[in-house]
Design a protein around this nucleic acid. Structure first.
Length: 830
DNA sequence: TCGTTGCATGGGAGT
DNA sequence: CTCCCATGCAACGAG
């Protein structure tokens, strides 16, 4: 059994003696028993990490033999490879390249000599040359980890059919960016040369390969289960038609993933004219044996950078992984979220959430100590490095930049490097992180013209400005920038203030970070300043103040209990926002800004302006009914006016936070509170605990977009609630009741009339119908009472405010039916 | 009041 | 459908 498993196959695992046993899983995966722990793993490499490598054993990159690196004696048995990993002395000294050359030539011969079939872009050959191909693949596998980029490695595919096995050699289309200018047959090779400096002879030989872009050979010998995949297919992580015996586990992913979707980095580098040092994502050598690393974490170091690093540190630097800093990574919190796979693969295993301090050296030689820890997260872990702020700041990194974790061999010391986003347009989170080039003044000002409120220069608290993000490679990313326009400040000032946004081009200062926050997520995230978020907190009263009757719609006048109401069939519109001032003399003024000239005009306090208003409509001050007329306010007064308004608002917000219960009656706030409080409303003392379990962000008093929505069954208003919403609903209900009663009386009159006509003829039927009706009404009423227990006599104020707004009418109608029915039933019983 | 900590949430990517 | 991870945010602590 043992020999069947490892004895004759380049299975990629340590040689046979390292394993006691192996067998096929039902899933097709190949499990092995670790020699040390005896546990079975579907992924043998897992054990290698924790039991082989941990105890000082490493795997030769070439022959896959295990070498103990921990003792002095064995030092002579291996060499650290420049590209990571180790190689045993015999392998390193062996004429590997020559062997490879021969093997490739053999492959060529195999492909040319034997009758082959070309199926699906692959050449199938007999099994006679299986051994040669195996040798080839083994060499390819060995060399790829040290010489070939992942891109080429993706060209290596070895898969197993029932009776055949394919070997796809590493010639393949690599990148769309180069494909237009290169012969597809050579592009990867040429690229390989560019990338890794593969000797010209190799390129030449490979170029001579007759099969392009891929060479696929079928091994006719039924490999059965004994043939294990080489690193080739492991690298590719792709199997065709039938999974390999050495398939990954059910939930395990390919050991190495597909390459980045677009060879964007390559293109970018190419575009930047850095052809001599293309930045290719290289999956770290060890990654093959660890958890899968997503391509975006593959370190993308040019050879030049590697050399430089190695030179600076006077050691061999093995790139492990990299990560583009997110806003939170680069933020003040000082927590760098580590990709789980990377953390588990390259950092010491931690069992406690507290983790352990990790000493990481930067490329300048400065040593930092971070706390490497994790948080439980959805039955998983979330790894973070804490205390990275000083390091991040010392490197002047910000969101969008990239940190690169590497290891120094020998010694295994961790190194943190970085790459500025401006030097490399990273594909990973370029669209999700702050732009490297930020937003120029030109952009922001031009963005103003794109203002969604364009032509509406009244003091909108927020203006949506579309900002082009030219920094990104795709050139399509756009940022919706919520920009405070200073509540109607002159445009020059706006642009000036937005110049500060340009700070994105500079390292974000602490204060800047503090003042910015992201809402939403990913590329759709809206960058919003905290002061803007303050402005977003529109209170119910303020919203009410802005409501205007729908234009050109005449209301119907309804009088209820001596109160005259105007009812509109259309919803109200938001009117122009104005500010009020009070003079020391007690005189009150209202101020509005012209939509054309942006000048502020004094208005009577009782005036309601339409959404758009210009000086020409200033019928209250003829001297300032033209935009050419000078502004009444001097800049300082205007500033005071705006500040007062803003201050008032902030004060209100603060009060809301301070004592949300005090504002329960303030309309939507109350609604929000109630929605959150839910059934706990009757016990307000307990509101601070438990009520936000489901949505802890929505606290009582929260006026976020979620909370200001009408409650949908969760929060319920007290029947005696007198908040604005309740009062509005009550009023509306009364109105509808009045109409309903009127219609009902009309119908009753008609019914009475008809009844008189048919009375003699259908007397018995009418009585029956009446009885039926009575029964129906009773059932109806009871049913409604069960469904909506709060609905009852409006005079008691017991109105269900918790219905869906779109169902309001229906509910009211049902309520009316219920009450009417109840009334009729009662009358009937009399 | 501000900063820190620990966890929750949800969008999105991968399977 | 699951998992990752960026980020929100409440609780807590320090000044």
């Amino acid at each position: 059994m043992e020999s069947d498993i490892c004895g004759n196959t380049p299975c990629g695992a340590v040689t046979a003696h390292e394993w006691k046993k192996g067998w096929l899983l039902r899933s097709g995966g190949f499990a092995k028993l670790c020699n040390k722990c005896g546990s079975a793993y579907e992924n043998s490499v897992f054990c290698k990490k924790f039991h082989l490598e941990e105890s000082g054993w490493r795997e030769c990159n070439f022959c896959k033999k295990a070498i103990h690196c921990g003792c002095i004696v064995s030092k002579s048995l291996f060499e650290y490879l420049d590209f990571g990993g180790i190689g045993c002395t015999s392998c390193v000294k062996s004429p590997q390249l020559h062997l490879m050359q021969n093997s490739i030539t053999s492959a060529k011969n195999v492909a040319s000599e034997r009758p082959s079939s070309h199926i699906d872009g692959r050449i199938y050959v007999d099994s006679v040359h299986e051994g040669k191909l195996m040798q080839l693949c083994k060499i390819v596998e060995a060399s790829e980890s040290s010489h070939w980029s992942q891109v080429q490695r993706d060209g290596i595919l070895l898969s197993s059919g029932q009776n055949s096995q394919e070997v796809k050699c590493p010639i393949r289309e690599v990148d769309t960016g180069l494909s237009n200018v290169m012969n597809p047959s050579v592009q990867s090779l040429t690229f390989a040369k560019l990338e890794n400096g593969i000797p010209a002879w190799e390129l030449k030989n490979m170029h001579e390969l007759p099969v392009q872009p891929s060479l696929c050979m079928s091994l006719g010998t039924p490999s059965g289960n004994s043939v294990l995949p080489s690193a080739g297919e492991i690298v590719e992580g792709r199997v065709e038609e039938k999974p390999y015996p050495f398939h990954q586990g059910q939930r395990s992913r390919p050991i190495l993933p597909k390459p980045p979707k677009t060879g964007l980095t390559i293109n970018q580098e190419t575009n930047k004219g850095v052809l001599s040092h293309p930045r290719i994502a290289r999956p770290p050598a060890e990654a093959r044996g660890k958890n899968q690393l997503l391509p975006r974490y593959w370190p993308r170091l040019t050879d030049k950078e590697l050399e430089q690093w190695s030179g600076d540190l006077k050691s061999t630097v093995v790139p492990l992984f990299e990560k583009v800093l997110s806003a939170s990574d680069a933020g003040r919190i000082g927590r760098l979220v580590l990709p789980k796979a990377c953390a588990e693969a390259y950092f010491p295993p931690i069992s406690q959430s507290e983790g352990l301090p990790l000493r990481i050296q930067d490329v300048k030689g400065h040593e930092w100590t971070f706390q490497f820890r994790f948080w439980p997260n959805n039955n998983s872990r979330m790894y973070v490095l804490e205390g990275v702020t000083p390091c991040i700041q010392s490197m002047q990194l910000r969101a969008g930049d990239t940190v690169i974790f590497s290891r120094i061999d020998p010694g295994g010391k961790l190194v943190i490097g970085f790459r500025k986003a401006s030097n490399s347009l990273d594909t990973q989170d370029a669209s999700t992180s702050a732009p490297s080039n930020g937003i120029s003044m030109k952009d922001t000002c031009s963005g103003v013209t794109d203002n969604l409120h364009s032509g509406n220069s009244y003091p909108v608290p927020l203006q949506l400005v579309k900002v082009k993000r030219e920094a990104y490679s795709n050139g399509l990313s756009e940022h919706l920038h919520l920009n405070s326009m200073g509540a109607g400040l002159p445009k020059s000032e706006n642009c000036g203030s937005m110049t500060n946004n340009d700070s994105l081009q500079q390292p974000i200062s602490v204060s800047e970070k503090k003042r910015t926050r992201n809402i939403g997520s990913k590329s759709k995230r809206l960058l919003i300043r905290s002061e803007d978020s303050m402005e977003l907190r529109l209170t119910w009263e303020e919203a009410q103040d802005l409501l205007r009757p729908p234009p050109s719609v005449k209301p119907s006048i309804v009088t209820i209990e001596d109160h005259v109401f105007e009812e509109y069939d259309e919803p109200p519109v938001f009117g122009k926002r104005t500010f009020f001032t009070t003079h020391s003399s007690g005189r009150q003024d209202q101020w509005a800004q012209c939509d054309d000239c942006c000048k502020w005009r004094r208005l009577p306090v009782d005036v309601l302006l339409p959404p758009k208003w210009t000086c020409s409509e200033n019928e209250w001050d003829d001297s300032r009914s033209l935009c050419s007329a000078p502004e009444e306010l001097i800049p300082k007064e205007l500033e005071n006016l705006l500040r007062t308004s803003k201050g008032f608002k902030k004060k209100r917000i603060a009060e809301d936070r301070k004592s949300p219960q005090e504002h329960e009656t303030s309309g939507l706030d109350a609604l929000a509170s109630l929605a959150v409080l839910g059934e706990n409303f009757l016990a307000p003392a307990d509101d601070s605990a438990g009520v936000t379990t489901k949505h802890p962000r929505h606290r009582p008093g929260c006026t976020c977009i979620v909370c200001i929505q009408p409650p949908s069954g969760k929060g319920r208003h007290k029947p005696s609630c007198t908040c604005n919403v309740c009062m509005t609903v009550k009023r509306r209900f009364k109105t509808l009741m009045m109409r309903k009663k009127k219609r009902q009386s009309e119908r009753e009159a008609d019914a009475t009339e008809k009844e008189q006509v048919h009375h003699q003829r259908d007397e018995s039927e009418t009585n029956g119908a009446s009885r039926d009706n009575t029964v129906c009404i009773e059932e109806n009423g009871e049913g409604l009472a069960r469904v909506h227990p709060e609905v009852s006599d409006p005079s008691t104020g017991q109105i269900d405010l918790n219905c869906h707004p779109k169902r309001e009418d229906m509910l009211v109608y049902e309520t009316e039916l219920s009450m009417t029915s109840h009334l009729e039933t009662t009358n009937h019983l009399r």
